[in-house]
Write a protein that binds this DNA or RNA. Structure first.
Lengths: 151, 151
DNA sequence: TCCTAAATAAGAATTATTACTATTTAGGTT
DNA sequence: AACCTAAATAGTAATAATTCTTATTTAGGA
């Protein structure tokens, strides 16, 4: 079986398809933003993406970037990271994964764990709510911050 | 075994003790804020707490409320809810629990699940990071929003 | 090619959060 | 009980983040 969204080409195809499904127009800005965020390793904020996109579209407005990112997340093409009241950050990782979050520096680290992936949702919750996502969130102090504290 | 922080009286005692441990002064404002947030059912923002506290301390500033809430969370007496780039919200629930979050309205619902409580953290993460908290985060649409959509 | 609703740019407005500073106060000391 | 001092607070001001407004442009269907 072909892996879901395995290459950038597949990715773009899928994007175009998804836009049409949703009745959204395919604009150069959207394509650039989509590609940029999908290639981001660490969970970028709208501001970060904005600065990168400006190199391609110098006249683009922050609002367009931000709005597009929100649109993409509504389309299910990326997710909003569960933060803690800091700036909103986006998660382009479409593989099933989980998060570690550093309390000190706010860094979010993706990790993979099969047993976490298999977690069952309690029946009474399934009945009451529509559940789209199950994610384990670890919180603590990252390696960098541990070392810093020792100084 | 006596349950940890089971009553309001215990709670206040513990608060005073904890403040002293941390070298923090016990002020009427702090006590009020602490009590207020601990009695909050649904995860309040600083703004919400501020409005409630004003009924007791009409002259209190927002900054004091916000700063105090952040202090309390640093002391480990409450937690910051993992949101999605919206306003910072606080979680006074000190029992081991997990969260469901509604994508539409942003509501956070606490729930309890023993098997989730027992989740093991992978060794390689334990070695690299200090892990303080393991929480399962479910995401989807809540009952209210499901009904609204049907209109 | 034309048309129209959707999308964008630009900047204003709003909202959330943090910083600054003069004043007050908790709590230790005498 | 009065005094002292560092910490905490009130009252803004400043900053940062996010959303809104409006005139203009454009994607994509007719």
């Amino acid at each position: 079986m072909k892996e879901y969204r395995s290459t950038k080409e597949d990715s773009l195809e899928e994007f175009v398809k998804k836009c049409k499904e949703c009745g959204l127009k395919i604009t150069p800005q959207r394509i650039s933003i989509y590609k940029e965020v999908l290639n981001s390793e660490n969970h970028p904020s709208a501001e970060i993406i904005y600065r990168r996109i400006k190199r391609i579209h110098p006249g683009i407005s922050f609002d367009t970037v931000n709005r597009t990112l929100l649109t993409l997340s509504e389309m299910g093409l990326l997710e909003i990271v569960e933060g803690s009241g800091d700036v909103r950050r986006f998660d382009p990782n479409n593989k099933n994964h989980h998060h570690f979050r550093c309390k000190k520096c706010g860094k979010i680290v993706d990790f993979y764990n099969e047993s976490y992936d298999k977690l069952e949702v309690p029946d009474y919750l399934k009945k009451k709510f529509i559940i789209n996502k199950v994610r384990v969130l670890l919180e603590g102090i990252c390696d960098n911050c541990i070392n810093k504290t020792q100084d």
